[in-house]
Amino acid sequence: MKIRTLIVDDEPHAMEIIRRYAAHIPEIEIVGTCSNAIEAFQTIQHNNIDLVFLDIKMPRLLGTDLVRSLKTPPLIIFTTAYQEYAIEGFDLNAIDYLLKPIPLKRFLQAIDKVMHFLNGDGKRGAAQQDAEAPAQQAPDHFLYLRIERRLIKVNTRDILWIESIKDYIKVVTKDKIFQTKQKISVTEKLLPTGEFMRIHRSFIIPLNKMEGYHPNHLLVAGNVIPIGRNYKQVCAEKFNPGTEIL
């Protein structure tokens, strides 16, 4: 089996590293390279491409925007020097996300994920099977947090609350507390719709863990979480309908 592979990067040196690594894998066939996302769009449209090593931050069009523009994108491995794009990359269902400079070990791990997927037992394949199966339970949803140069995967079902501390957020679960540099407004958009609620400029809570309501605070998993002044009315409408906060 040959995996027809395209490399998209505006840095020739980065392209050459992937070419050199790919030479160790007989299944990987490099069928082309592109220096920008627009050129890559045309190449993907007119060729049978199985896998794309895709840089994210490129002139004219971001790699993430390229993926969004494709109705049926090939397998994607994002490659970038900018770790802040990691969450967006995983939200686009990428096979993997490689942070430059790319070590050979991480490259091989990414290829292993591709092989598993093509053999029918990878993560994307499992997600597709779940979608086709009868709906019994909503699929797990995850936050991906960059902590000490690693991506930590947190199941949103385990979250007790999220707290903002300046430019950082603290994600509190029953067993652990995770802290990472990220704005709470960005985190709010990444949470599953209808399952979480912003009750303060510095706090987001999961609705299913709310145990008690007071006009000034909520009880969440036994913890008192304050309600911000600008959020009191919407909280009253949610948790004590018919009341009005003056």
Rank of each mutant, 00 (worst) to 15 (best):
I77P: 08
P103E: 06
N36C: 05
Y85M: 14
A127G: 05
N155C: 10
Q137T: 11
Q136E: 14
V67C: 03
A138L: 13
H141S: 10
C34M: 05
I87H: 08
I76C: 12
I152W: 07
T33P: 00
A127P: 02
F142G: 15
G122C: 08
L54Q: 06
L143P: 04
L75S: 03
E39D: 14
I152E: 11
R146N: 10
I28E: 11
R149P: 05
V52H: 06
I102T: 09
I147K: 13
M115V: 15
L62G: 14
Q129A: 13
N155P: 03
I162R: 09
E148Y: 13
N155V: 05
A126E: 14
A127M: 06
L99I: 15
D96S: 06
I30N: 12
N36H: 11
E148T: 14
K153L: 14
A94S: 15
E148I: 11
Q136I: 12
L75P: 01
N47Q: 13
H46M: 00
H46N: 09
F53V: 01
I56S: 06
S69W: 03
R60W: 10
D91H: 13
I159H: 06
N93I: 02
L98Y: 11
A138I: 10
I49R: 02
M115F: 14
P73Q: 02
A81Y: 03
I95K: 04
I44Q: 02
V31Q: 04
I147D: 09
I95Q: 03
A81V: 05
T80W: 09
D158Y: 06
I95L: 08
L51F: 06
I76M: 15
I147H: 13
L108M: 09
D112I: 01
T33N: 07
F53N: 07
P134T: 14
Q42C: 01
W161M: 08
T33C: 07
E39C: 02
L104H: 06
K100E: 03
L75R: 03
K71Y: 03
A94L: 10
L75A: 04
G89M: 14
I30D: 07
E88T: 04
I111L: 07
L108Q: 00
Q136R: 15
D91I: 05
D112H: 01
L108S: 00
K113D: 05
Q109F: 07
P101K: 02
L66I: 06
Q83D: 13
E39F: 01
Q42A: 00
N48H: 15
K123H: 12
I159R: 01
L54W: 10
G120R: 09
L61Q: 13
K100R: 08
I111M: 12
T64P: 10
K123M: 09
A133H: 12
P134I: 13
L98F: 10
K57P: 01
A131F: 08
Q42P: 00
G125E: 03
P101G: 04
F78K: 09
K57M: 10
L66A: 05
L54F: 09
Q45V: 01
L108T: 00
D91F: 04
R149N: 15
D158A: 09
K71E: 13
L70Y: 02
D91S: 09
K71A: 07
I77C: 07
D140G: 15
I159L: 11
Q129S: 15
G120E: 04
T72F: 05
R150F: 08
I56L: 12
I102K: 13
D140S: 15
